[in-house]
């Protein structure tokens, strides 16, 4: 039967694809190329959750120019792989941030920028705020209130090191969070 044959045929293709992926995963050259490619195209989604966004904007502007590290802010989450939580998130905003994070394709990283995103900062006892690590897997923290643009650059470098270090996990990575 044609249908049954088709199913068997597709099943085989699935197996082949899995084997190919395993082969590629083990190849050192592919891993290196991939991590090199990704760490200089960290595109953050433009998600100014709070006031640290002013320093984020200064970091993307000519004086500090984080674009030389491949840091190019984008409007839509579908083209991005880095989420910078810029300062305090309120409960209302945290739901949006979570949703934006879910819309981003894998692999993806998160920077918690500013004291508020780290541990509440000056708004620590407010009824309406929430720290980033309670709803997102954070890869790098930037202390400061607000952090200077250089501090954000440092966090980008930390993420690049992390990508190089964890290059084994780049292919076939699953969203565990």
């Amino acid at each position: 039967m044609a249908d049954a044959e088709g199913l068997i045929y597709l099943g085989n293709l699935d197996d082949v694809a899995k084997k190919a992926l395993e082969f590629l995963n083990k190849s050192e050259f592919i891993k290196k190329t991939l991590s090199w490619g990704i760490d200089f195209s960290l595109w953050p989604v433009h998600l100014m959750t709070s006031c640290c966004g002013a320093e984020f904007a200064a970091a993307a502007s000519p004086r500090f120019d984080l674009e030389r590290l491949g840091f190019l802010p984008f409007g839509g989450p579908r083209q991005t792989n880095l989420l910078v939580v810029e300062g305090t998130t309120t409960i209302k905003m945290a739901r949006v941030v979570k949703r934006v994070y879910e819309q981003m394709p894998n692999p993806k990283w998160v920077i918690a920028m500013g004291a508020c995103a780290m541990d509440g900062g000056i708004f620590f006892n407010s009824y309406n705020t929430i720290v980033a690590r309670e709803y997102l897997p954070v890869d790098a923290y930037v202390p400061g209130c607000p952090p200077r643009p250089e501090a954000l650059a440092r966090a980008v470098l930390l993420i690049q090191e992390k990508i190089k270090r964890e290059k084994d996990a780049l292919l076939g990575v699953k969203n565990e969070h």
Binding site: T49, S50, T88, T90, K92, M93, V96, F123, N125, S126, Y127, N128, T129
Partner: peptide
């Protein structure tokens, strides 16, 4: 609005 409502009035009263 209110996505960035950080309750500054409430905090400053405390």
């Amino acid at each position: 609005i209110g996505f960035v409502h950080r309750t500054s009035e409430w905090l400053s009263e405390r």
